[in-house]
Amino acid sequence: MKENDFLSAVRKETGFSAKLTEQMTRQLVEILSGMLAAGDSLTIHGFGTFELKKKEERLSVNPVSGKRFMIPPKQVPAFRPGATLKERIKNYKGNE
């Protein structure tokens, strides 16, 4: 599913114009990424939490050369489903 399909679904629900939907989506994404970049988390009740996860440094081996590498620590954005969503996922038996 392309972003356009998703946006048109949002449009259908809200009744907003395409321009407004697009603009708001961009702004929302920007706000959210700003929060994440600042190390903050955003919890949407009933949906889940967007947060930062810290990955520790680790040793890794290049399978081709067999050379060992120290992979530096990093931060990655993550999403954790909330309780309601988790419950729904648990009961989800596939689309077909």
Partner: peptide
């Protein structure tokens, strides 16, 4: 009012589409 509605629908729609078996892509997010 618009902002509230939009934010609510935005996440609700991600959920809806995902449960329809679709992959939801949002530019800039993932």
């Amino acid at each position: 009012r618009d902002a509230e509605e939009f934010a609510r629908v935005f996440f609700a729609q991600i959920e809806e589409q995902v449960f329809r078996g679709d992959t939801v892509k949002v530019k800039g997010l993932g």
